[in-house]
């Protein structure tokens, strides 16, 4: 059961990463690789601030702003200096590697014996349940600490999702969606495309850094390597989420992305339990994303061949 709760918590935390990437990849349609660096940036800023004794909530806020700054730099590289989309992201990601080392001062900061939102919430939950260390859910004994972290991440994920969904239906949000869908049209309607791209990337990487902040607090450490492959994980989650809800409206798709991230974490947890070598995890994920990207076209070809065959038979 703790495995399931763990996967759920991890999924909820990383759903912030997926939601951020949903803005950049799906809304504004920008292939943003900054993600691998900005998630670590969020983790390093938070780890440093928490170790220095700042409130974990303030640390989360500063991390988010840091991620937003990193995202806007990628956006400016692309819009102002006309550097290719992918290269802008790669440049920023590479720069962030050194920046993260600078922020932390070393390659790893452990978060032991400090007040993170995890420990803070645990204390709060212990108080309201009158010092019971385990609660009984459907016959399972669940450690109260795990439950507290799970509830906290769920609250944050839902809060961000509702806010994001609301935003996408505002005047600014519709303009942003249109900028991704038809850049020529929004220019003719008086929207500065470049501003929209920079703004979207700032928002996306802000959310990604927030995910990094929570991740560091949940795992109990920040590591300069922790961002590697995160972009592909986020992409895999979005693909699963979209497959779950099908062709749906914005609200449902956002819910789908969160569910997709959780499902992806569950699949990984199960695969690891069954004996998948953790070293192979990224290879498997990359293969999964590849399969998800080519499968629709491949199935389309297959169905055309079949229906073509049928026509041949009829004739």
């Amino acid at each position: 059961m703790s495995l399931v709760i763990g996967a759920f918590t991890m999924g909820l935390i990383l759903s912030l990463l997926s939601l951020g990437m949903f803005i950049s990849f799906r809304m504004i349609r920008f292939t943003d690789i900054t993600v691998d660096g900005s998630i670590t940036l969020g983790a390093s800023i938070s780890a440093l601030m928490i170790v220095e004794g700042y409130s974990p909530w303030l640390a989360m806020l500063v991390s988010t702003l840091g991620g937003a700054l990193a995202g806007s730099v990628t956006g400016i590289l692309y819009t102002r200096f006309k550097i290719q989309e992918i290269l802008s992201g790669i440049l920023m990601m590479t720069a962030l590697y050194s920046i993260n080392l600078r922020v932390m001062g070393k390659s790893n900061i452990p978060l032991l014996d400090v007040t993170t939102i995890s420990t803070g919430m645990e204390g709060f939950f212990e108080k309201i349940t009158a010092t019971a260390s385990k609660v009984d859910i459907l016959g399972w004994q669940v450690p109260i600490g795990d439950l507290a972290v799970f509830m906290t991440s769920a609250m944050i994920a839902i809060f961000v999702a509702v806010l994001l969904c609301g935003f996408l239906f505002t005047h600014a949000g519709t303009a942003l969606r249109a900028a991704g869908s038809n850049p020529q049209m929004v220019r003719a309607q008086g929207v500065n495309n470049n501003t929209m791209i920079v703004f979207s990337l700032a928002m996306a990487n802000g959310l990604v850094a927030l995910a990094g902040s929570l991740l560091a607090q949940y795992q109990g450490f920040a590591d300069v390597q922790m961002g590697i492959g995160m972009m592909v994980w986020g992409l895999a989650s979005i693909i699963i989420g979209e497959a779950l809800v099908g062709k749906a409206g914005i609200g449902l798709t956002i819910a789908g992305v969160i569910l997709g991230t959780i499902l992806f974490r569950l699949l990984i947890a199960i695969a690891l339990r069954w004996g998948l070598n953790p070293n192979d995890l990224k290879l498997v994920t990359a293969f999964f994303v590849f399969a998800a990207l080519v499968a629709p076209a491949w199935f389309g070809m297959l169905s055309r061949k079949i229906s073509g065959g049928l026509n041949y038979v009829k004739n």
Partner: peptide, 12 residues
């Protein structure tokens, strides 16, 4: 909203 400020009010 062409030529105007695009606010955070709901569009539709």
């Amino acid at each position: 909203k062409r030529g105007q400020h695009r606010s955070f009010g709901f569009a539709v």
